[in-house]
Nucleic acid binder design. Structure first.
Lengths: 339, 339
DNA sequence: TATATTTACTTAATCGTTTACGTAAAACCA
DNA sequence: TGGTTTTACGTAAACGATTAAGTAAATATA
């Protein structure tokens, strides 16, 4: 069974395809009666315009790309949700691309998007991304790019972030107030903006409370779960074993908890743990984990809204293109002083 | 800056677009020398063929749609990952659509896909989906549809499922062996295939071990977290309070754990809990939860492989189109008899 | 009544690739 | 050498929707 096209519609209505097209798009120079006839039949026959034809002719795809490092992460899953909500409402389609934290893949993907497949791009860059040439090329081609969460400072048509510095600062202060003297920060990437922001908030708090920041305060983690677990395991055997750990991304929670379990260290009795995470199950972890929760859904939504606004050619002022949403510090048992 | 098209390529090379096109597609009637020239320049200028033009002309989009109820669920997130892996390798693009468990949305989405936007569809239906007319329409239009996880028996071009009945049976037996006398099954949907399969495995085990199955063994849950929590909370106050709960989908873990906490019931001391879930953090929950873990990534991968095979017009035998992958029962503390 | 304007349509070009078909030149064959 | 085949390219027509430009008929205006 072939699907019905505009040509067949026109034939059945004894009209030209031009008239049908204009009727469907509610053009002023088609009579009301004809419009009704066309709409009725189109609906009856489940007419769906061919996306490629419209796309080719109109240079519009009604499709946006979401380029993210991974999908099995609460933050990104929730963010996609936000994006999808906006897209669905506005009749847009969402292409999802996973970079798996590899810049090369990211570049290949962006390269592919240069020629009309999508109208705009939402991106959260990989932990290694450093150069913006491909992204610049997209933008200079007329494809707006909005960053969310993992952004490039001052690039693209917009940036949706959270108050990473402040949140991290607050979290660190909270730990210090819980009498932690040696807090280790698990750094995920050295080049990523969110990573350095989070680290700097942490450093700032240390400094303000008179603690020194040394190499020992940092554990650099990778994308390999097993590797991370081992380095944390080693960390926990140091002479100056930390009394608190901040996991700067969700992915580091598992290795941290597991390493503590294997070392027979009780959280929070022997060591406090907190994490940047959107994990829904934070409250039922063993123990419930203190988190900095980002408004992931909102961020996806805001990013998509901004992108669509740009696509509609609406003017966008500085405030709109540079949104910083507040994340929430949720204090749970993993950082409470046991009694 | 406009992107480079085939026309410009041709002009620069002093060739016709036909020759360029054929050279790029490695046609036999272009000389090796010319092919090299074309390929070289195309690469230098970062030529990317226009997706709409190719799509329109060739009636191929190199795009597949993934239609799922939600994305913030470990199973679906991992499944998308599997799909993406295959797609990326084969140069396909992945459109993600969320139905939010609403049949109406599902139908609108599928309707939209009728006209060329995608070459094929991977779907996990909503909990209310019952009729297959839209899906049939897609298939009769020549768009293959492969189901995964939440399938419609005997429909579509393929079905990738897990051994839900067996897994559920095994889990129930495990609970019975842990001396559970009153196991309640939290049913998510009454129409969904996976739900009934899981329920039937449970019933079978009850029956084999001489337990009666009554209305009281079932708690029907919805898509509303709060609502679910309240009904579980009430369940826990019944005179014949269950000594075990099986959550038939991941989404029911949170309300179950929370309700138990609020009732001050210790898992597994007062009540055992197990769930069908792919939650990565299962091991670090309080307590670590016994799960039936589905090979989500593999399922996504298998479904995508099957779909692409169908798209390539390769013959597919019964075995290939009907895959049942084994899930794994991972016994953890939430169902162990405390000593 | 003659002319101008408006209404409601149609014609045909266009978007960028692909491909069936056409064709000159080169290579081959007898 | 004359003819056939092969090679390597070009011409032009699709794909289906959109839209500028054109047109006949209806209506308005002077």
């Amino acid at each position: 069974m072939a699907t019905i096209g505009m040509k067949e519609l026109a034939k059945k209505l004894k009209l030209s395809t031009a008239t049908v097209s204009k009727a469907l798009r509610d053009s002023y120079d088609i009579s009301e009666k004809t419009k009704q006839r066309v709409l009725k039949l189109a609906h009856e026959l489940n007419y769906v315009p061919n996306a490629h034809a419209s796309g080719l002719r109109g240079k519009k795809s009604k499709t946006i790309a979401v380029v993210i490092p991974e999908v099995a992460d609460s933050y990104f899953a929730q963010a996609i949700n936000g994006v999808e909500t906006v897209a669905q409402k506005e009749g847009f389609h969402v292409l999802v691309y996973l970079t798996h934290e590899q810049v090369e893949k990211e570049n290949l993907i962006l390269q592919e998007l240069l020629n009309g497949r999508v109208d705009g791009v939402l991106i959260s860059v990989t932990s290694q991304s450093k150069d913006v040439t491909t992204i610049d090329k997209l933008i200079s081609t007329g494809i707006p790019v909005v960053f969310f969460d993992r952004v490039f400072e001052g690039q693209g048509n917009g940036q949706i972030t959270t108050d990473d510095f402040d949140a991290s600062y607050k979290l660190t202060v909270h730990l210090i107030e819980q009498a932690c003297k040696h807090i280790v920060f698990l750094l995920f990437s050295e080049s990523l903006n969110i990573s350095t922001q989070r680290m700097n908030g942490y450093k700032r708090a240390l400094h303000e409370y008179g603690f020194n920041f040394t190499e020992n305060n940092l554990l650099i983690c990778t994308n390999q779960d097993q590797e991370n677990k081992e380095s944390i395991y080693k960390l926990l055997a140091r002479k100056d074993r930390p009394d608190a750990i901040i996991a700067s991304v969700e992915k580091l929670i598992m290795p941290t908890y597991l390493a503590c379990m294997e070392r027979n260290l009780v959280i929070p009795g022997n060591i406090r743990v907190a994490a940047f995470s959107n994990l829904v199950q934070a409250e039922i972890l063993n123990p419930a984990i203190t988190t900095i929760t980002q408004p992931a859904f909102e961020m996806g939504k805001t990013a998509a809204d901004l992108l669509l606004k740009a696509l509609k050619g609406k003017p966008i002022d500085q405030e709109e293109s540079n949104v910083v949403l507040p994340s929430v510090l949720e204090i749970r048992n993993s950082t409470k002083t046991p009694f």
